[in-house]
Amino acid sequence: MTTGQLMADERMPSRIADETISGVPFARLVKLELRKLVDTRAGRVLLAVVVALLIGVSLIPMFAGSPAEDKSFNDFVQIGSIVLQLLLPIIGILAVTSEWSQRTGLVTFTLEPRRTRVALSKWAASALMGLIGVVAGFVVAAVFTLLTDIIRGSDPSWSISWEVVVGIFVGQLLYISIGVAFGMLIQNTPGAIVAYLLIPSLWSMLGSFSWMANIAEWADTNKTMAPLLDASMQGSDWAKLGVSLVIWLVVPMVAGIWRMTHSEVKSG
């Protein structure tokens, strides 16, 4: 080792001006969580897959059927919404579970020991990403409505009710929130994704038995959310939506945040 190197090795970090140090603001946590969603290849691939699938499923109505059949702006919005419903919650799940699967929780929770704030910032960041996803869905739907008109002369209807727009925004945010809740409760990426994707289908299967049909009407989010997404909410639909959300969103979210704030964070 040369003398010059020794001198360089003995350098100390510079001091930061010692102003009063305040807690980490919530907005900063949300900004950080948003960045963590896009700063890895895995995160960016997932977002690219969302866009690619939005485009992919829109190609189906574009070329299928007669030129006037199912080619309105509303039709494209609805088919895109199915893709978002499947994939956006996975973003929410990964935002949470990566702290365990990649063991980054060790750093995250030492830099912000108030873990409830970390949990809420992950929820907020996932919701913001979801809003961007829904907007992307509307943009893709508009482009495809226009392209289909040009290529196939579909002469589409551009009308869409505000209830559908609001319903899709609210519905997708609820789906993402369920994803976040499952992530916090299960703390494991494959487990949370499988649970999120499988449990509703399980309900649909069970619902095919007559004695289960009644329960499924109240507990199957696929059934209770459908009127929200196509703006056909009426009568007991609201109560059914509320009950299913208590089961699949409120209970897992509360239990998940409790688990996140009380569990031991280990490296190994």
């Binding site: 063991r103 929780g105 060790l106 030492t110 490296s267």
Partner: peptide, 14 residues
């Protein structure tokens, strides 16, 4: 407080 508990506990893709 500067804490280093496990240098490997970081996202491998970052």
């Amino acid at each position: 407080v500067g804490v280093l508990l496990d240098a490997a506990a970081q996202h491998n893709g970052r």
